[in-house]
Design a binder for these strands. Sequence first.
DNA 1: ACCTGAACACCGTTCAAGT
DNA 2: ACCTGAACACCGTTCAAGT
Lengths: 231, 231
Amino acid sequence: VDRAAPTRPGLSRDRVLREAVRLADAHGLAAVTMRRVAEELGVEAMSLYHHVSGKAALLDGMAEVVVREVVARVATVQEPEAPWPGQVRATILGAREVVLAHPWAATLVAGRTTVDESLLTYFDTLGGRMRRAGLSVDLVHHAMHALGSRALGFSQELFEEGDDGPPLDEATVAAMAARYPTIAEVAALAAGHDPASTIGWCDDQAEFEFGLDLILDGLGRVQARAGGDPG
Amino acid sequence: VDRAAPTRPGLSRDRVLREAVRLADAHGLAAVTMRRVAEELGVEAMSLYHHVSGKAALLDGMAEVVVREVVARVATVQEPEAPWPGQVRATILGAREVVLAHPWAATLVAGRTTVDESLLTYFDTLGGRMRRAGLSVDLVHHAMHALGSRALGFSQELFEEGDDGPPLDEATVAAMAARYPTIAEVAALAAGHDPASTIGWCDDQAEFEFGLDLILDGLGRVQARAGGDPG
DNA sequence: ACCTGAACACCGTTCAAGT
DNA sequence: ACCTGAACACCGTTCAAGT
């Protein structure tokens, strides 16, 4: 082989998955098709099947890549002197930084059909930090359920921002305020008293941390009630 | 028209959406295609476009049907004497009963692109019950974020049950316990000390309620700290 | 072992045509 | 206004064939 020429490395599972992730980051999850991923790699669609068993496995693998990135990111979270909620908090906020860079990942992780090695590693790390702080096995179990996908940094928003639509006229706003009084007052407060902007009205990161702290505080309280060492 | 013959009512948006929901309940979300829904209604695929603007609108509409069902279900939740966390708790657990009957809905609600009337109604109802109990507008706002999709009764599980796979042999279990010590001890406790069963190991409903109560307790504590009326 | 090309059975959606 | 049929531009996946 010519050592000066750019080596065209053969396909591999990893190269396929990374290309799929790159495509999703750039053009959204809908752009990830077997044919498109192959084309991007300069190869025929059928070649992918030698490294990935099908479309479902490709999507699972993409989730795996993101979680592996999360694991790498949070490995460096180390504040041994801090009390445990700070440790767990920093771990989860680290995961969130990674997850925010891959907005398509939430859907994928939610629809995942397999539990892969990276996910086990992440939850063992997170759970281990709780155990070392003195939380009981049972409480760690509850904590995982209470956190849910929030443990990986995902928000569970029901009103997504982005599709704001045209601004509403005054009459429509008044009609909505009459029909949905509570939402109207919440929107008015959150949007700095501009009731027309009902979407994209708040600081997602601050709200994520509020919810996270609520859960961590609650877990600490359960631990204290059980007579555990708080930190 | 012959009054004895079964009237073949023309298509309508509602008939289309209900048929799509029926299909998803029976055969999963993947079975919901424009062509299949049409076939089931004894009509050509193109006819659907007169009542629904496309596939995305069909999926949005299916989420709408489920949320409408939730709204109908929780309208009857009335325990005026109970303190507010019980009111909110009963509302959310009512929503959960509906949602559990449509396991495909979680994905759909998460990927929804529009905020429809039924969703606004639900959150106005839920928020209104908090407001009437004395929670501040700001706290109701935080509560919505903290609850996230849990407000509608969705769990946010990361390890889904169902794809249990073949039972693991003793050597594999030992290897996993060495690699993932925390997960191993959690699994061992939760599964009644049978470490081979790492999935489907616990009571989903109880865990959902644990997490919900953690959040409701936390909200109550924030309210009390702010000097609000706890009842 | 890895990659290809043609083919199959599906999709969502357009368009012009029917009534 | 509502529904149809044919067609278009895509999908994921199979299969037999190449090297």
